[in-house]
């Protein structure tokens, strides 16, 4: 059965997370815990924290994430292609070149429009 190779992954998912938890529990039992309001203050370079931690982020992050999503989808398509490449003709390379070039066009567009600038 082809699922056999996944049993190990499944077991690891079930059991593997315990290993990082063990030192955490050790720390939980061994370490002293005497919190007080001053200790529990949020760290902000020695001054009182002003406002909520939820500050609004710049749209730039979102652009990079979007460009990434587009590329990520492309990369996943590339995997079966690369895998079968030895059994494919030269035509496959041409097709993939078209596939990649279309995205490169988009990347160049993004670049020229200045969306890849941080400031």
């Amino acid at each position: 059965m082809t699922l056999n190779e996944w049993i190990f992954v499944g077991l690891f998912l079930m059991a593997g997370w315990m290993l990082p938890v063990v030192p955490l529990l050790l720390g939980y039992w061994l370490a002293p815990r005497r919190p007080n309001p001053v200790k529990k203050q949020i760290y902000e370079c020695g001054v009182q924290t002003v406002g909520s931690a939820w500050v609004q982020f710049r749209a730039q992050y979102y652009v990079f994430a979007l460009v990434f999503v587009a590329f990520d989808v492309e990369l996943v398509f590339l995997f079966p292609w690369a895998l079968a490449y030895n059994k494919l003709g030269l035509f496959a390379l041409f097709e993939m070149a078209v596939f990649i070039l279309l995205l490169v066009v988009a990347l160049v567009y993004t670049w020229r429009k200045g969306a890849l600038e941080w400031s």
Binding site: F12, G16, W17, L19, P20, V21, P23, L24, L26, G27, Y28, L30, A31, P32, R33, R34, P35, P37, K39, K40, Q41, I42, Y43, A53
Partner: peptide, 28 residues
Amino acid sequence: LLKEDLVPDGADRWLFNLAPVLSTFSVL
């Protein structure tokens, strides 16, 4: 191990504690 473990005010306790475990686990 012997250092005091502080959870800051207003922290999202579950996520705060889960994050280091998941971080190590993802590498394992």
